[in-house]
């Protein structure tokens, strides 16, 4: 589970996250939404220990990210939005690297790597460099790397990026089964339909703070809208989409 208390992050004078309080329960697929620059990535970076909060704290699986970062990291898997990988490594070497960093038993790691690579259809290319992989293949390696240590909490930042329709379908089913097993999944995406369909609970962040929380239906009802998409637009202060589009056309003089 994931808990944050008054989590705040400043970048010089800019406030990225302010007094954020979250409580994600075991077995939940928690959708974390927000417009660009709302503080989503900063929150994920803090929760995964990549950066430090200016104040407040976060507890993951009972361990404080500031006091016991290593214990937290033993229990998490992360798929970053950037898709950044050491591209000079082969797919096999990259997974080995992650397994070593997690101190995984070599035999267990080898077995999992074999299985993931076969399941994702990457076996034939596993000794080719990541530089030679397509975007979808790289994403599959990132997902495999996040799962290889069998973490109890998964942070997924736009995990479907680059995946073909079949792989995306398999991955969404996998998430549901993992949540049934009791894994906590922190899911960040801009594709609201996907979030609406697979997340058991959703929070919307804007200007560094939570502005709505609940199931997709609860959020829609509380804003008087029919869909999550419409609620999101209303909550994050976006003007009527049709008016905005018209203004763009007028600015172009057409």
């Amino acid at each position: 589970m994931i808990e944050t208390h008054q989590l705040t992050k400043h970048y010089d004078t800019k406030v990225a996250v302010v007094n954020l309080n979250l409580n994600v329960r075991e077995g939940e697929i928690f959708g974390f939404l927000g417009p660009n620059g709302a503080g989503k990535s900063t929150t994920v970076k803090i929760l995964t220990g990549m950066i430090f909060p200016t104040s407040g704290n976060a507890v993951i699986e009972g361990f404080d990210i500031l006091k016991d970062p290593i214990e937290v990291k033993r229990r998490i898997g992360y798929v970053p939005e950037t898709g950044a990988l050491f591209e000079s490594l082969t797919g096999w070497e990259y997974l080995q690297l992650i397994a070593d960093l997690h101190h995984l038993d070599r035999q267990i790691a080898g077995k999992r790597m074999d299985e993931f690579l076969h399941l994702f259809g990457l076996w034939d290319d596993c000794h080719a460099r990541l530089q030679q992989y397509s975007k979808g293949m790289k994403q599959k390696i990132l997902i495999s790397a996040a799962l290889i240590s069998n973490p109890s909490v998964l942070f997924l930042d736009e995990p479907l990026n680059g995946l073909d329709a079949n792989a995306a379908l398999v991955f969404k089913e996998l998430l549901k089964k993992l949540s049934v097993q009791g894994k906590t999944i922190f899911f960040t995406s801009h594709v609201l339909e996907v979030v609406e369909r697979i997340c058991t609970r959703i929070a919307i962040i804007d200007h560094g703070g939570i502005i709505a929380e609940g199931t997709a239906q609860q959020i829609a009802e509380s804003t008087g809208q029919k869909t999550l998409e419409e609620s999101f637009a209303k909550l994050t202060g976006v003007r009527d989409a049709r008016d905005s589009a018209q203004d763009f056309l007028e600015a172009l003089g057409t």
């Binding site: 220990g49 990549m50 997690h102």
Partner: peptide, 15 residues
């Protein structure tokens, strides 16, 4: 030039 990929050292439980 691969510095973005170093996120892995900050996320894994390696000291």
């Amino acid at each position: 030039e691969s510095y973005l990929a170093s996120w892995i050292f900050f996320v894994t439980p390696a000291e």
